[in-house]
């Protein structure tokens, strides 16, 4: 009950509370702001969800977003070089993200290292690649058509918000109707049983990491388009916010539970919380601390009954 209806109820309660506390919160403009500012987080959290369903974790989001963001800034029309690949640049940046994801998957499954270690290493590699690409001069995108995606409005929302909505729909379809999604849940539920039943665990784990990497790449592209230039800090702070969103929405870190829709509810909760707290005058820096407490508390609450069974937790 709490697992299914808790997060949507929390979202509703938050919206009601902020509407009462702040007249500014309950305006259409603000609703559009919330949806627009949730777009990047939604895309990367959909990706992260597939990794969390496995029972693994991904700490590489900041690195992948940085590398993809800088490569897309350098491949679109910009002030650093004469390259202008247009839409192909975006495909290339997403593909780069997928390569990082593939590296995460292959290193975790073939070298048999816990995913939090491999993804921490890969994140550093991504940041390093981005720093090398940055090269001291910030690449600024000079194409007005690209800026239109972040600024121009369709039905009152930016086009990037529709991109995010599309990604969510595709994410739900992948989760429900493809082997990547369905096996991810199976592997997260009981990896040893999945392997005994003939599921090619390593292959589908790697595929899930790759899909996630591609979506982080897309997230990096979206941030870069929003900012109009490529920076190494494109994904700064997003990794932990995405984990918070997924966990708050009901996608457990232990794997096998939750899904894309739950995670999106979590994204909305986190975004509404950030928006509402700013509107009622709370320092945005407090939010980072609050997120940390929320994640640990959510994990503690969901695993509390299992405490006695899991005598040894590292």
């Amino acid at each position: 009950m709490l697992g299914t209806y808790g997060p949507p109820a929390a979202l509703l309660a938050l919206c009601t509370a902020f509407s009462i506390a702040s007249p500014q919160f309950r305006t259409w403009t603000n609703l559009r702001n919330v949806l627009d500012s949730a777009s990047v987080l939604a895309v990367i959290t959909v990706g992260l969800t597939f990794v969390l369903l496995l029972g693994a974790i991904d700490l590489s989001i900041e690195g992948v977003m940085a590398a993809s963001g800088l490569s897309v800034a350098l491949l679109l029309a910009n002030n650093r070089n004469d390259v202008d690949l247009g839409f192909v640049a975006i495909i290339a940046a997403v593909a780069l993200g997928a390569c990082f994801g593939l590296a995460n998957g292959l290193l975790s499954t073939r070298l048999r290292i816990p995913s939090f270690m491999t993804t921490l290493g890969v994140s550093a590699i991504g940041i390093g690649v981005a720093t090398v690409l940055f090269g001291g001069i910030q690449p600024t995108i000079s194409s007005p058509a690209v800026a239109e995606w972040a600024n121009g409005q369709v039905l009152g929302l930016t086009r990037l918000t529709f991109v995010a909505a599309f990604v969510v729909v595709v994410g739900v379809l992948i989760q429900r109707y493809t082997r990547i999604g369905r096996y991810a849940r199976v592997i997260g539920g009981a990896e040893d049983l999945a392997a005994l039943s003939g599921v090619r665990v390593a292959r589908y784990k790697t595929l899930a990491f790759t899909l996630a990497g591609a979506l982080y790449g897309l997230g990096g592209v979206m941030v870069t388009i929003q900012l109009g230039s490529g920076i190494v800090a494109a994904g700064a702070g997003q990794n932990f916010t995405a984990i918070t969103a997924a966990v708050v929405g009901g996608t457990l870190l232990s794997g096998g539970r939750g899904g894309v829709i739950q995670s999106v509810v979590g994204v909305l909760i986190v975004t509404v919380l950030a928006n509402g707290l700013v509107l009622i005058g709370v320092s945005p820096y407090v939010q980072k601390a609050v997120q940390g407490i929320i994640v640990v508390a959510a994990v503690a609450i969901t695993t509390w009954p299992l405490r006695e069974r899991m005598r040894v937790v590292k």
Binding site: I57, F116, V286, Q291, V295, T303, V313
Partner: peptide, 18 residues
């Protein structure tokens, strides 16, 4: 609470920097 240490300290990381 028997929570894996990397989760506790990842949460801690966010709390301390906040």
């Amino acid at each position: 609470a028997q929570i894996p240490s990397f989760i506790v300290t990842l949460g801690g990381l966010a709390v301390w920097s906040g």
